[in-house]
């Protein structure tokens, strides 16, 4: 069989169109099934909000109340090493060594196991899912069970997740864990059940010093926006291009 160049180009064109069309169809099935999934209801319109979170590391005192409140609020098992939020302690010693720890995710607070005179500087860094704008966990989920809502929250559809744990591997921040009861992936939801009712996430509410601030990025008057407008902020691992929506004030270069 002889094929002229034009015919060849034509066939190639058809193949490309065919592939594009079929993938759009599949894509639309996927997005539809997701869009149909969560519609918080109750007069809440997710198109009107875009949630954001600020951590002021200068304020955190490492009491671990946030981590406790989260486990209670979201029924995260206390006896398993799984956390939706936790606090890390960084201690730069006088000899230059950096000690990082987060015993039991800070739930029981921290112990002074290094004499104060050996420490040059120390600080706490609360951690939580960053609800990345370009979330690798969403990207790698093979069935679309991890998805981003219209108001900027990354959630797991527990009725759909197949439990492959690819997302746990894909999250650069260690924010995800495997829920042994549901047998699915799990993580922080920014207390989606609360924020869609006008409440604050449990960790924000529990923080006694206001180190955790939550609010609407679409509202110019929100507390989050006020801080973002004024302070010098950073995000975790900016080089990975995930565009986190948890913003840090006073982030030290040692923080991982």
């Amino acid at each position: 069989m002889k094929i002229s160049r034009r015919e060849f180009a034509k066939t190639g064109f058809r193949v490309i169109i065919g592939a594009a069309v079929s993938s759009t169809i599949i894509e639309s099935i996927v997005t539809n099934s997701i869009a149909a999934e969560v519609s918080p209801g109750g007069g809440y319109d997710w198109k009107e909000h875009l949630w954001g979170y600020v951590v002021d590391t200068r304020k955190c005192i490492g009491c671990g109340r946030c981590a406790n409140a989260c486990k209670l609020e979201n029924h995260v098992p206390f006896d398993e090493p799984v956390y939706r939020t936790w606090v890390e302690r960084y201690r730069v010693l006088k000899d230059g060594e950096v000690k990082i720890d987060s015993p039991n995710g800070s739930i029981n607070g921290f112990e002074d196991d290094i004499p104060a005179e050996e420490i040059k500087k120390a600080f706490y860094v609360p951690k939580i899912c960053n609800h990345c704008e370009i979330a690798p966990c969403v990207q790698v989920c093979p069935v679309g069970a991890t998805y981003e809502t219209e108001d900027g929250v990354v959630l797991v559809d527990y009725d759909y997740c197949i439990g492959c744990r690819y997302c746990i591997q894909g999250c650069p921040y260690g924010a995800r864990y495997f829920n042994t009861e549901k047998r699915t992936a799990d993580k922080c939801t920014w207390c989606y059940h609360r924020i869609t009712k006008g409440l604050l996430p449990a960790c924000v509410q529990a923080c006694p010093v206001g180190a955790r601030i939550f609010g609407d990025l679409k509202d110019p008057e929100s507390e989050v926006n006020k801080i973002l407008d004024k302070e010098r902020i950073n995000v975790l691992k900016p080089d990975l291009g995930t565009k986190p929506k948890v913003y840090y004030v006073g982030l030290d270069r040692e923080v991982r």
């Binding site: 090493p81 799984v82 956390y83 936790w86 890390e88 990082i100 720890d101 987060s102 039991n104 995710g105 951690k127 744990r165 746990i168 591997q169 921040y173 260690g174 924010a175 995800r176 864990y177 495997f178 991982r256």
Partner: peptide, 11 residues
């Protein structure tokens, strides 16, 4: 230091 959630090896 490992992130608290990493204690469990997944794969």
């Amino acid at each position: 230091f490992v992130y608290p959630n990493e204690v469990e090896i997944q794969w």
